[in-house]
Design a binder for these strands. Sequence first.
DNA 1: AAACTGACGTGAT
DNA 2: CATCACGCCAGTT
Length: 126
Amino acid sequence: MKLTRGPRPPKTTADAFMKARRDILETIQRIPRGKVASYSGVAFAAGWPGRARLVARVLSDVPPEYEGLPWQRVINAQGKIAIPKSSPGHLKQQRLLKAEGVVILNGKISFAAHGWKPGDASPLLD
DNA sequence: AAACTGACGTGAT
DNA sequence: CATCACGCCAGTT
């Protein structure tokens, strides 16, 4: 009898990726209004240090069940909006951030002023 | 299968 | 400041 199609073995890499994506999205949800975090910071806080690129990847295609995710609060380590200036998303992110009180000076945001440190407070409520 | 592409980061020049 | 070279890694060509 040939069981070439038996029970599927766990694809650890893919499973790990799905877990990572969950961790990352949940971490971003905890960034409060008026605060921002870098891609690497989110990766670290999510338990996936060194995976900034993965955060970017996840953010570039947010699952529909995460509607309302404060994606605009994730910026690059230089304090700048990572989306290309030419993209419409750039302006949108800039508008959203300014609307929640984030100061953008010369295209840069001060982490000293708005940087989110996991463990600050008020999750769930923005 | 190999090359290329990012919403990245860091260190060197 | 700006650039470059790398390291990184899932997706796309």
